[in-house]
């Protein structure tokens, strides 16, 4: 059962992956990517990591929807109505990725992988949770800070207005003229 599902998900994932760069419409590309990544989530789910699988799906869906928003914002031809090739150096890229794929598959089959050690615990979610909160606390902390830094940096980069523009030149304008609405007391 597991092998069949793995095969199925694998093939669909690869197909969607190829579709991402094959189709003209950016929306279709985005949701092909979503499909591919959902299959990845499925593979992870099938490989005995239910929590991580579903979380991956959950995250990928939200990411792809947000990407769709940006895709519409920044793509010249989001709907792919005027097909034009946005590619360059196609042969080079193809060559390199083929080489990489060949070397990786070569490695996969040449390296004699060690035997499995130990057996999966009953509740893998509990295992990862315990590890993150225990032995890998440093990783968790680092991830936390990285996410915080990303939030702040992304906001700062994306915002058109500075943090103090709304307070005027002498930082004393009241009420602050803020282009973005909302905010308590306004």
């Amino acid at each position: 059962m597991e092998a069949v599902s793995l095969w199925g998900l694998g093939v669909v994932a690869l197909a969607c992956a190829v579709a991402v760069f094959a189709c003209d419409s950016m929306a279709r590309a985005t949701f092909a990517l979503l499909g591919s990544l959902v299959c990845v989530g499925g593979v992870v789910f099938v490989l005995g990591l239910p929590y991580l699988g579903v979380v991956t799906v959950l995250m990928m869906v939200m990411e792809m929807v947000v990407m769709a928003v940006f895709m519409v914002a920044y793509m010249m031809n989001p709907a792919g109505l005027m097909p034009m090739s946005m590619l360059h150096n196609k042969r080079g890229a193809l060559g390199i990725s083929a080489a990489v794929f060949a070397s990786l598959t070569g490695a996969v089959f040449l390296v004699d992988w060690p035997q499995r050690r130990g057996s999966p615990p009953r509740d893998t979610t509990f295992q990862v949770g315990k590890a993150l909160m225990g032995g890998q606390m440093l990783t968790m902390v680092v991830l936390g800070f990285v996410l915080l830094a990303t939030m702040v940096a992304a906001t700062v980069l994306a915002l058109h207005r500075g943090r103090y523009d709304r307070l005027g030149d002498d930082l004393d304008r009241c009420p602050a003229r803020d282009p973005a609405g909302g905010g308590v007391g306004r």
Partner: peptide, 15 residues
């Protein structure tokens, strides 16, 4: 994209 290409080639060599 050329940076990516260089990076990939570099990493494969390292690997």
């Amino acid at each position: 994209h050329q940076y990516y290409a260089q990076a990939v080639v570099g990493f494969t060599l390292l690997l």
